[in-house]
Design a protein around this nucleic acid. Structure first.
Lengths: 214, 214
DNA sequence: AAATAGAGTTGATATACGTCAATAATGAGA
DNA sequence: TCTCATTATTGACGTATATCAACTCTATTT
């Protein structure tokens, strides 16, 4: 059940006073989702300002061959696709839960009326928007600019967890097939850039990898 | 020479009072550029809040083979790469003038101090940021999700001017080679989807083209 | 320990585009 | 109108990556 306590624990709202928190509570609700459930589909009209409270959400597009192209994974507590609500346009991508989770849904018109004059709130919203620009830029930098080899090199250099991820998940992230990923890992191993310890890889020559994508 | 008159004619500033305009004038300057000149390079630190006043700017990344990947073309009067200034990070792409032009450079820290409490200004900045998200989304929708044929179909359906553009410019936009573009146009002509009249193409079967990218 | 399913690997093959080179069409200047 | 430079087209070929299928490894269940 949604409560003032929960709202208070969300960074962007922590400095709201009691009156404001009550108001916010009145224009919000919490919804729970199970793993696999879809929060929204691409091209659906955005209705609420949505913040992820618990769980992991993947944001993805579907290409003509029905491949999922994952743009980003969100963890709490972040606004999801606020751009679409701000602009009153359709969602540019779909969102689905990868674990059980919950979101906060806020009536956007009322939120705008009551909270947009609060500089702390607007500054947070700015940050949230610029963050989204960075995520999209990252997708482009990774997917449009680099070839598969460079993409893998960049990703494992910049995301420690990539080395212990399941390869088919990682491949999905990088928009390549598991087969291609396997071949690239093999190549890097042969070149002595990485080494396998059990099921986890270790980077031996970070500089060499960096040369590949810079 | 930069003047209050010029500032007054910029949409986002049109409701500022005399005092505010003078303040803005004090923290701004105008810079002129010639066709081909670079406004900023990718990875450079952003120093000023920049608005394009005259001319056309292309925003592009460079891939490892030194191909330019054009993300967007800006026309007046738009903020350019404000995200980088907001976040105090490096520009995620380069910007160069495609015609002679000029920009307004605003001292961001002082602008923030003095104008961020003005809801009209912040709302415009929101719009500008969400617009950028849409541009990037478009690049992804076009380049990552669709293959060349679908990309061309989408672009000529959604951008009338594409039909009379020079093919090598169009190809650059779509991140394909002129050869590939030529082959796709030929294919569309053979299929009766488009027809050439002089140097301009005409769409005969819009629905067929739409099926290709939907 | 045996059985089984999922994940990862490998090789053979297909395909979409890019590259290169030659040629053709177009358009601007003399 | 002719010339020259740019732009567009075409064909032959190369390359990166996807696809498909077989196989191996690993981990979990019984």
């Amino acid at each position: 059940m949604l409560s003032i306590e929960i709202l208070k624990n969300i960074g962007i709202f922590e400095n709201l006073n009691e009156r404001e928190l009550k108001l916010l509570l009145n224009i919000s609700r919490m919804r729970h989702f199970e793993k696999g459930e879809v929060l929204f589909y691409e091209k659906e009209k955005a209705k609420y300002l949505t913040m992820l409270l618990e769980g992991v959400i993947k944001i993805y597009k579907v290409d003509p061959k029905n491949n999922e192209i994952i743009l980003h994974r969100f963890v709490p507590k972040n606004f999801v696709a606020e751009m679409a609500v701000f602009e009153g346009v359709a969602y540019p991508a779909s969102a689905a839960f990868e674990t059980d989770g919950s979101v906060l849904e806020i009536d956007f018109e009322k939120f705008k009326e009551n909270f947009f004059s609060n500089p702390e709130i607007t500054l947070e919203l700015f940050k949230s928007l610029t963050q989204k620009i960075k995520y999209l830029d990252n997708v482009i930098a990774l997917t449009v600019v680099l070839d598969s080899t460079a993409r893998v090199a960049k990703y494992i250099c910049e995301n420690e967890e990539a080395l212990s991820m399941k390869h088919n998940k990682l491949a999905q992230y990088l928009h390549i097939t598991p087969e291609t990923l396997s071949r690239i890992f093999k190549k890097f191993s042969k070149l002595g850039f990485i080494e396998k310890h059990g099921s986890v890889y270790e980077i031996l020559d970070r500089e060499a990898l960096e040369i590949l994508f810079e």
